[in-house]
């Protein structure tokens, strides 16, 4: 395939742009996963807090069970 010099220059800059774009997309996907995990942990902590309010004695004993 015959590439002109201008096309090759554009390709070099384009490759860098695509790499950065893919990197940002990967980081964004990771951020979504971390957000989901944070929400799950927050729900877990809230559930424990609610359980402790209902039965304070069980909540004090709970750490010893593990």
């Amino acid at each position: 395939m015959n590439w002109s010099q201008a096309e090759l220059v554009a390709a070099a800059y384009g490759v860098v742009f695509v790499f950065v774009l893919v990197y940002v997309a990967i980081i964004a996907a990771k951020l979504v996963r971390l957000q989901r995990e944070t929400t799950a942990l927050l729900e877990l902590a809230r559930g424990r807090e609610a359980a402790a309010r209902r039965d304070p004695a069980a909540a004090v004993e709970a750490p010893n069970e593990s």
Binding site: W3, L8, A11, A12, V15, V16, F19, Y23
Partner: peptide, 17 residues
Amino acid sequence: TIFGALTLITGSIWARA
């Protein structure tokens, strides 16, 4: 490693040109 891969790719394109 990411910038190294980019160095090889852009260098290869420059070599072709």
